[in-house]
Amino acid sequence: MSDITESVIGWIRQNCARGGQAIQVDPDTPLLAENLMDSLDFLNLVAFLEERYGIKIDSDALTPENFETPTTIVALVERSTET
Results as ranks from 00 to 15, higher is better:
residue 20 G to N: 03
residue 20 G to C: 04
residue 21 Q to F: 00
residue 21 Q to A: 14
residue 21 Q to L: 08
residue 22 A to R: 13
residue 22 A to Y: 01
residue 22 A to S: 12
residue 23 I to Y: 01
residue 23 I to N: 08
residue 23 I to H: 07
residue 24 Q to H: 13
residue 24 Q to M: 12
residue 25 V to K: 02
residue 25 V to Q: 03
residue 25 V to H: 03
residue 25 V to R: 01
residue 25 V to E: 03
residue 25 V to F: 01
residue 25 V to Y: 01
residue 26 D to F: 00
residue 26 D to P: 03
residue 26 D to I: 08
residue 26 D to N: 14
residue 26 D to H: 06
residue 27 P to I: 03
residue 27 P to C: 02
residue 27 P to F: 01
residue 27 P to D: 08
residue 28 D to V: 05
residue 28 D to F: 11
residue 28 D to I: 04
residue 28 D to N: 13
residue 28 D to K: 07
residue 29 T to V: 07
residue 29 T to S: 12
residue 29 T to E: 07
residue 29 T to L: 09
residue 30 P to Y: 12
residue 31 L to V: 08
residue 32 L to N: 05
residue 32 L to D: 03
residue 32 L to Y: 02
residue 33 A to D: 14
residue 33 A to C: 01
residue 33 A to H: 07
residue 33 A to Y: 00
residue 34 E to N: 13
residue 34 E to C: 10
residue 34 E to G: 00
residue 35 N to D: 15
residue 36 L to F: 09
residue 36 L to R: 05
residue 36 L to I: 10
residue 37 M to R: 01
residue 37 M to S: 04
residue 37 M to A: 11
residue 38 D to C: 08
residue 38 D to Y: 03
residue 39 S to E: 06
residue 39 S to P: 09
residue 39 S to N: 13
residue 39 S to F: 04
residue 40 L to E: 05
residue 41 D to L: 09
residue 43 L to Q: 09
residue 44 N to Q: 13
residue 44 N to W: 02
residue 45 L to S: 01
residue 46 V to H: 01
residue 46 V to Q: 01
residue 46 V to L: 13
residue 47 A to T: 14
residue 48 F to Y: 15
residue 48 F to D: 04
residue 48 F to L: 06
residue 49 L to D: 02
residue 49 L to A: 08
residue 50 E to C: 09
residue 51 E to G: 13
residue 52 R to N: 07
residue 53 Y to G: 06
residue 53 Y to E: 06
residue 54 G to H: 07
residue 55 I to R: 04
residue 55 I to Y: 02
residue 56 K to I: 10
residue 56 K to Q: 11
residue 56 K to M: 11
residue 57 I to D: 03
residue 57 I to F: 08
residue 58 D to S: 14
residue 58 D to N: 12
residue 59 S to W: 00
residue 59 S to D: 13
residue 60 D to N: 07
residue 60 D to W: 01
residue 60 D to A: 15
residue 61 A to D: 11
residue 61 A to Y: 00
residue 62 L to V: 12
residue 62 L to A: 08
residue 63 T to C: 00
residue 63 T to E: 05
residue 64 P to E: 15
residue 65 E to F: 00
residue 66 N to T: 07
residue 66 N to M: 02
